[in-house]
Amino acid sequence: MLDAAPSRSFDPKDYLRLQYMPHFMCPGCGHGIALHALLAAVHDCGIAKDDLAVVCGIGCSGRVGGYIDANTFHTTHGRPLAFATGLKLARPDLTVVVVTGDGDCLAIGGNHLIHAARRNLDLTCLMLNNEVYGMTGGQASPTTAATRFTSTTQSGAIEPTFDACALAAAAGASFVGREVTRQAPALKTLIARALRHPGFSFVEVMSDCTEIYGRKNDLGEAPEMILSQKADMRPDSHRDATDQPFRPHALPTGVFVERDLPEYGARLRAHAAAIRKEAGR
């Protein structure tokens, strides 16, 4: 990990609203690790705090943005992508990052996700997937794994889960990747690539909910949960070579889609300019 260390000048405290720290999240919550990686990626990309806008929805993930000392926007449940679309179209000079959760993005905001991916507007969507609605009391989300106990699946979940990356890729996102919080330096690199990518970038972060989900499902304390990430998830290339027969359902990590598609904001402005020209204005 030495090589992947953030440059010496990086101090997360420069990017945090110190008056609100320490943050409200439970001990061992993976969202804090994801926030650290996001700040390191912003630092690596050299984005000034005034040029960064973070749009969040509702839920534990929705509170992440509030701790970032930048332009932040706490929106309604499931709609951060809709707010971010308006913001990016009005202010194309800003780097707009959407921080959302599995319930926020896939259930309440599932419609917004597929259409944001389809349009390919230059946004970076960071979906923190902890497989549960943590803040509202531990209800099952679209990514809750089978047999897991939640407050709405008291005898174990039976629904199939969403593969958010496959969904985003199928809807037309031009950059799709997934990483676990255990591999925080790799997560930072992935987020930095997504930030630099022109177009809709979707990054799924496998995070841990220790208190509401892990504790009630006997998944261990925070260290056990974070260590099991490493056993359960591998880069695609590695899995194919070694793990495939043994772990058929483990989620792959890495970059799945990186393609060059026309960006919506530029197309919209060109289209508007052409209409104005035609109308003689």
Partner: peptide
């Protein structure tokens, strides 16, 4: 830096 990267609370 494993501890620094993985500390959720900075």
């Amino acid at each position: 830096r494993v501890c620094e990267w993985l500390c959720p609370d900075f």
